[in-house]
Computed example of a mutant assay.
Amino acid sequence: MQLLPSLPNPSVFVLDNAPYHSQLTEESRCPTTAIRKADLIRWLKQHKSSIPPAATCPELLLFCQQNRPQPQYKIDNTIRMWGHEVIRLPPGHPELNAIEQVWGCMKRHVRSTLQRFTWTDLQDRLEEARHMVHKDVWTGAVQHSRKFEEEYWKTIIINIASDDEDDDVFFESDVE
């Protein structure tokens, strides 16, 4: 926990959807099929949801899903507690995350220079790759991600005149 207190306030953290970034708080977890019926009922009561009499476990699980709270992530709460902001990348878009570009550069170096398949040689190539990542590499990765983001936004058309929620966002590929 040395990073958060040392950053200037406010800083912005851009997080991908890696599992270690996506651990839910206890309050925002929704029950799963591994829970007993009594616990499902208790969860629904805690979340002030109506419980139909004689509901089966699958029906109770469906009610839980319908009354699921907004996800809150442990790491987001910790980051905000220190006065910083969190932006989460959309799932399935590693192109928007500059670190993915850097990892790719490092992996290409290791793959192209690894001569002997030994642990020592692998560690040496990884260390070389780590030293290759300097300010210019990061700058290029961030520029690449920004360029991709700009192109991504160009493909979205927002119809603000529509009252139908399903018609609010179109992708360029949907419009002919």
Rank of each mutant, 00 (worst) to 15 (best):
K45Q: 14
Q72S: 07
R108C: 08
C105V: 05
P94M: 01
R29M: 09
A141D: 02
H47V: 00
L24C: 09
S112A: 11
A34L: 15
I99V: 12
L40I: 12
S28N: 10
H93I: 04
D39W: 14
G140L: 07
L60F: 11
R88V: 02
S28W: 08
I41E: 03
F117Q: 10
G140R: 11
A141E: 00
E100Q: 08
L60V: 08
N77E: 14
V110H: 00
A18H: 05
T113L: 01
Y73C: 01
L89W: 04
K37I: 07
H144C: 09
Q115V: 10
C30P: 06
T120M: 14
P31C: 04
H21G: 06
K74A: 02
E149M: 15
E149L: 15
L126Q: 13
N77P: 09
V133N: 00
V137K: 06
G83Y: 05
L60C: 08
K48Q: 10
D76K: 00
N67A: 06
Q123I: 14
L60R: 06
S22K: 09
A141F: 03
T118I: 05
P94C: 04
S22N: 10
P90E: 04
S28H: 08
I99Y: 07
A98D: 07
T56S: 12
Q115G: 11
W82E: 00
Q115T: 12
F117Y: 13
E95C: 03
I99F: 11
L89A: 03
T118M: 07
A34Q: 15
S145D: 04
R146G: 12
A129K: 00
R125Y: 02
L61K: 10
G92K: 06
T32F: 13
A18S: 06
K37M: 11
E151G: 15
Q101E: 12
K135S: 13
R68D: 11
D136I: 06
Q115K: 14
E27F: 14
P19E: 05
E95F: 05
S112K: 10
V102T: 04
I75F: 13
E26M: 12
K48D: 08
P94R: 02
D121H: 14
M81C: 15
T32L: 13
G83K: 05
P58A: 01
M106Q: 00
H21R: 09
Q143W: 13
A34D: 15
P71H: 03
V86E: 07
T56N: 08
T113W: 00
L61Q: 08
I75A: 11
V133C: 01
G92F: 04
A55M: 11
H134I: 10
P19N: 07
M132A: 04
S22F: 05
P69S: 02
P58K: 03
H109L: 01
L44D: 04
P94V: 03
